[in-house]
């Protein structure tokens, strides 16, 4: 099967800065794909190359098997939801949504009908006559979404679309976006720096750092089996274990990761475990309590269900975890 989007050894250099360095990606048609990474990691550059706003310094890009280099954005059947929404301020909502149909010379009645339908899809029916300036952030975001899907593109790109929304709105939009993607069947490529967002929405995630893809996989793979210290650290605050520490437990000198929830915390002396430490901080997070524990100079995070009896700060505790909870990392970076 042809990939929806395929990047082969794609680099983009700005002077001496390598925003993207020989990136390979294969995005499957119909999947919800997230590109996750801190700012400056190359994820947005990657999105811009797919949209056609920028051109690769080297490498090859294909969209549904067709070469995309040298093809301007207006000839790509790919649409984008911009981070700042980029709604046209001189047009009202319905004209914004119908913009691409107008360019395609769709008859006026027909394009208004399609635009209105797209607005219905994003639950903004009846807002057509308003100006973008009269809408809230969340509404603008929906208009941007409607404008991008009215054309039924082969690929929809979303550049941090939820970044400017408040937490509550963001959570409900996450669910809506996922449902929308399912019903449209369009390939979604989603750029975000929020690991929670990427893990909860995407079918697959690519983690970017320093212009390179660190790891590609399902959210579960990324979360449970990070291949590098960066991924372990960036995706969900794992404990990164130094080789000396790992050797003392497993007998191999390797970097490894350990999820906070895999650590059992017991009152000192109640277990045969030799690992005793002191609780440095204790943060109540609702369902869980997060502990920072000092273990002979090694700091470990543990999260304990708040329903259990949780020791207080300064108390001595004994730690225990299954040996197979320690995930050895292949990449020693």
């Amino acid at each position: 099967m042809t990939a929806a989007v395929s990047l082969q050894k794609v680099s983009r250099h700005f002077g001496l800065v390598k925003a993207m360095d020989e990136v390979d990606l294969e995005i499957v048609p119909g999947e919800f794909f997230a590109m996750l990474g801190p700012s400056g990691s190359g994820k947005t550059t990657c999105l811009r190359l797919i949209a056609g706003f920028d051109q690769p310094s080297s490498g090859h890009i294909e969209i549904f098997g067709e070469t995309a280099e040298g093809v301007p954005p207006y000839r790509r059947n790919v649409n984008t939801v911009f981070q700042d929404y980029a709604l046209f301020p001189h047009l009202n909502v319905i004209q914004n949504v119908a913009f691409s149909l107008m360019l395609k010379k769709v008859a006026k009645a027909e394009r208004l009908k399609q635009a209105a339908a797209a607005l219905e899809t994003v639950k903004l029916g009846g807002y057509g006559e308003r100006r973008p300036g009269q809408l809230s952030g969340g509404q603008r975001q929906r208009v941007a979404l409607a404008r991008a899907i009215v054309n039924r593109p082969k690929v929809l790109l979303l550049d941090e679309p939820l970044g400017a929304l408040d937490l509550k709105l963001r959570e409900s939009m996450q669910e809506e976006l996922k449902a929308l993607q399912k019903s449209l069947g369009i390939t979604f490529i989603f750029v975000t720096h929020d690991q929670g967002e990427a893990l909860s929405m995407a079918d697959r995630v690519a983690v970017f750092n320093d212009g390179k893809v660190q790891q590609i996989g399902t959210p579960e793979e990324i979360y449970k089996r990070p291949q590098s210290r960066f991924v372990a650290d960036f995706v969900g605050s794992s404990n990164v274990l130094a080789p000396d520490f790992v050797q003392s437990i497993l007998g191999v000198r390797r970097w490894a990761s350990l999820r906070p929830e895999a650590i059992h915390v017991m009152a000192a002396g109640t277990s045969a475990s030799r690992m005793t430490g002191t609780i440095v901080t204790r943060s109540y997070l609702g369902a869980v309590v997060r502990l920072l524990i000092d273990l002979n100079g090694t700091s470990l995070h543990a999260s304990v269900p708040s329903s259990e009896a949780v020791p207080g700060e300064g108390e001595k505790v004994t730690l225990g975890f299954a040996k197979d909870a320690i995930h050895l990392m292949e990449n020693e970076k």
Binding site: R76, N77, V155
Partner: peptide
């Protein structure tokens, strides 16, 4: 559903050609 091609052909004409070149 999206029966159209992913890459649309050039628009031809002076303006289409110029626009592509400028991009």
């Amino acid at each position: 559903m999206s029966a159209e091609a992913a890459i649309l052909p050039g628009r031809g004409g002076l303006f289409g050609g110029l626009s592509d070149t400028f991009w």
